[in-house]
Write a protein that binds this DNA or RNA. Sequence first.
DNA 1: GCGACCTAGATTGCATGCAATCCAGCCCGC
DNA 2: GCGGGCTGGATTGCATGCAATCTAGGTCGC
Lengths: 232, 232
Amino acid sequence: MSQASDRVYTALRAGILDGRYGFGDRLGEIEVAAELGTSRTPVREALRRLGSEGLVEVLPTRGARVRTWTAQDLGETYELRAVLEGLGARRAAGQVTPEVVDELAALAAEMVTVDPSLGHRPPGDFADLAALNARFHAVIVGAAGSDRLAATLAGLVQLPLVMRTYHRYTPAALARSHAHHHEIVDALRAGDGAWAESVMRSHVLAARAVLLASHRDDATGAAATDPEGQAS
Amino acid sequence: MSQASDRVYTALRAGILDGRYGFGDRLGEIEVAAELGTSRTPVREALRRLGSEGLVEVLPTRGARVRTWTAQDLGETYELRAVLEGLGARRAAGQVTPEVVDELAALAAEMVTVDPSLGHRPPGDFADLAALNARFHAVIVGAAGSDRLAATLAGLVQLPLVMRTYHRYTPAALARSHAHHHEIVDALRAGDGAWAESVMRSHVLAARAVLLASHRDDATGAAATDPEGQAS
DNA sequence: GCGACCTAGATTGCATGCAATCCAGCCCGC
DNA sequence: GCGGGCTGGATTGCATGCAATCTAGGTCGC
């Protein structure tokens, strides 16, 4: 991990996720290399890697740009997440240990306690909620015990981080999200794969609806550049 | 596409798929570069790219090897294909044009005519059948109209090509495969997404069962190195 | 005789120079 | 005045040299 290539990859990825690089921004090899104090070679590798993950688009002989997302991209990605995370929940239901279920229950409970819309945090402070949510989903995918599934999902779950849409959730949508989390925990504890899969799909498709509605608003109104909050 | 990096990628990929490079074979940068008459730089990029697609595994400071597949890998990959191609079929059913359905029907019919088990080809000659089958699935994914789905599946459909398992299909399994193809065409023509999705999932899971059974045989008996035949 | 260390070879990772390609602006012709 | 072609600048793509790391073999010590 002390490899220069990994350092560049991590730095670029972080820069894209926290908005330091905006959509469509050009990522010149020389420019990035100078910025990170390395040569072009590791930068090239990092850019290609980010390209294969869909965070940047690399055009032959024309360099790399931070990928811009259309409403269709968002819809398709969440459709994939719905079926894949649903599969993960179904698999997890059949083999998850009580300890892991307890951990998920704790995460679901803690998410409620850090929900700004419930007055437990300053309004708009979705950082903790986003982190807990990401962990909740990661634990379930891990419990599914499929490396291939985890690898496939890895390239898909970064998108919501980029979009930072948690701050567009209405209190009602957040309450529904919490309810989904608790229901997923119950389904997993019951070992009911069909139930867990169904709720998880609903959960992701509900997030999809929020994101698409939010994106529509972005298109019509002015896009608020809120630095916090990341979506399901 | 005349880029050296692409040429190396294509050559390595072809070499892995047709068995010229066997499982676990080492792919040294210098060795491959000399073999293809280029320098190490494009070879490095091609290897990383193949690594991100799962065809080779790259270990830090230890080079790349052709990935070896466990039974679990195979099972997981086909499970993913089942839900993803199912999703593709469902989406396609809602928007496919009659012309594309006709093309699929033609492909399904032609697959029957080139099936060696039906006496229309020398025994063991699965090359045409595999090619037609790959095209059949690609057309459906294309008709789904989801770039993101297509990209995700792209990294998954290469595996059956590597495993070359068509030659392990029994005549009954092949007949079932043909029946699935025709049923998928009927479901698409009817615009019935639920039906199309269900059959497609069955189709892929049936292929999964064949592959896993075949893999078990490989483990017990001697592995026949058949150069032809590629699976669903 | 066996095991740990140490050295030598080989290979990957990084840096940098050069060639090819692309884009922008300008100039020329109509 | 306007469009097409062309040249200059900049950037990517490829090749290669050097340093860092790992593996394998041998040697020394116990």
